[in-house]
Amino acid sequence: MKKLSMPHDALYKSFLKDIDIAQEFLQLHLPLYLQKECDFNTLQLVSGAFVQSNLSQRFADIVYSVNSPDGQDKLYILMEHESTASALPPFKLSSYLNGIMQQHLEQGHKQLPAVFEMIFYRGERPYPGPTNYLNCFKRKQLAQKRLGLPASVKILDLPTIPDEEIKRYKRMAALTLAQKYIGTQNLMQFAPQLAELLQCYPLPVEKLRQLIYYLVEEGRGDDGLFLQFLMENVRQCREDEEMKTLGQFLRDEGREEGRREGWREGQRKGEQLKALAIAQNLQNLGLELDTIKRVTGLSDLKGFA
């Protein structure tokens, strides 16, 4: 059985392209003033592919549209996933903003829409980059006067979000916790918290499988022991046939790796014994210890007189 790869960015997109999960997430993270302008029953995933003037394409991670409560207006929500703090994230988003607005005009609208931007940052250290367009400029005061630059981009900075806060994220909580710790902790260190979240907020089976494959593929530590823990403590994992198959595969892989390691250890010990025998013969011939070490490659000759 081949383990499926589920990179950080792909897992994020998979979860937030689910409209129900996205609605939960946005109702937690959008400012209240903006939520009052949204009829979440009209939330709709829209294309994030934009053709630029030079005919090159840009691809935003997640773009949603949502109507105003009176149905007379539409706004857009742009959500980007970042694993590293690129040089100027707000400037990067500006090209997507232009694409979203152009797409809106091409649908027959006469005025530009409001767009709210959000960055989901899962780096190993707190987010170090600029959070607004103004800080992307060298001459900030001049840029502010000339352009009237907008407020800061919302940054969900995973390294700084307390675990207790993450538990409020409902079905996005498991993914958020996983991406917070995937590069810094052994899988078993956060397994109990993850199991608790999966029990409280069961995921669609496809999303659950993607999350587990991601953790097994990208995580640190004994993935067989980690999956066994989840299967013992999360009913949904325990009852899924694909998880059982993956668990058996990991156990078999672990046993095979143990056999290979045992064989390698035996080889090392055999080679060491041969070197010691050669060292003993060289000593019997009257060679000095320094010479014996150079010839055999042994650094420890305790017991040799």
Rank of each mutant, 00 (worst) to 15 (best):
A151Y: 08
Q144Y: 11
P126A: 11
L289W: 09
R238L: 13
E257I: 14
N41T: 14
Q199T: 09
R260M: 11
I182Q: 00
M101I: 14
K110R: 15
S56A: 07
A151D: 05
Y213L: 07
F40D: 01
E24L: 06
S94Q: 14
I19S: 01
E124Y: 05
P90I: 00
I19H: 03
Q27F: 12
A174T: 06
E253N: 08
N132V: 00
I21A: 00
Y12L: 09
V115S: 02
F229N: 10
S86W: 14
Q57W: 14
V66T: 04
G48S: 12
L142H: 12
V115C: 04
M101L: 06
Y133V: 03
V66K: 03
L230V: 08
Q144P: 05
D222Y: 10
L250I: 08
D223T: 09
M1Y: 15
A114Y: 12
L197K: 08
Y96R: 01
E217Y: 14
C237S: 02
S53N: 13
P162H: 02
G123K: 03
Q103H: 11
K17N: 09
L282N: 13
G148E: 14
A10V: 15
E37T: 10
G297S: 04
E288D: 09
Q283M: 12
E265V: 15
L4Y: 10
Q57Y: 13
G266Q: 11
K74W: 13
L282A: 04
A87K: 13
I62R: 02
E253W: 14
G270D: 12
Y214E: 03
Q23W: 05
E271D: 09
P128W: 09
F91S: 02
P130R: 03
L273N: 12
L11I: 06
L197S: 02
A173S: 03
A60W: 04
V234D: 00
L250F: 15
Q23H: 07
Q179T: 03
R125N: 10
P126N: 11
C136F: 05
F229P: 06
V295F: 13
K154W: 06
A151Q: 12
V295S: 03
P204T: 05
F229L: 11
E37V: 02
K167G: 03
T160D: 01
Q102P: 00
A114L: 11
L97Y: 11
T291S: 05
E106W: 15
E165Q: 15
K3I: 06
G224W: 11
L208S: 01
Q57T: 12
I119T: 00
F137G: 00
S86N: 13
A49L: 13
Y181R: 02
V51N: 10
Q280S: 11
Y96V: 01
E24H: 08
Q228H: 15
A49H: 15
G129Q: 03
K244L: 06
Q193C: 07
P113R: 05
R171Q: 13
L26N: 00
R220G: 08
G183R: 15
Q107A: 04
I21L: 01
R209Y: 08
L105F: 15
D39Y: 10
K180Y: 01
K274P: 10
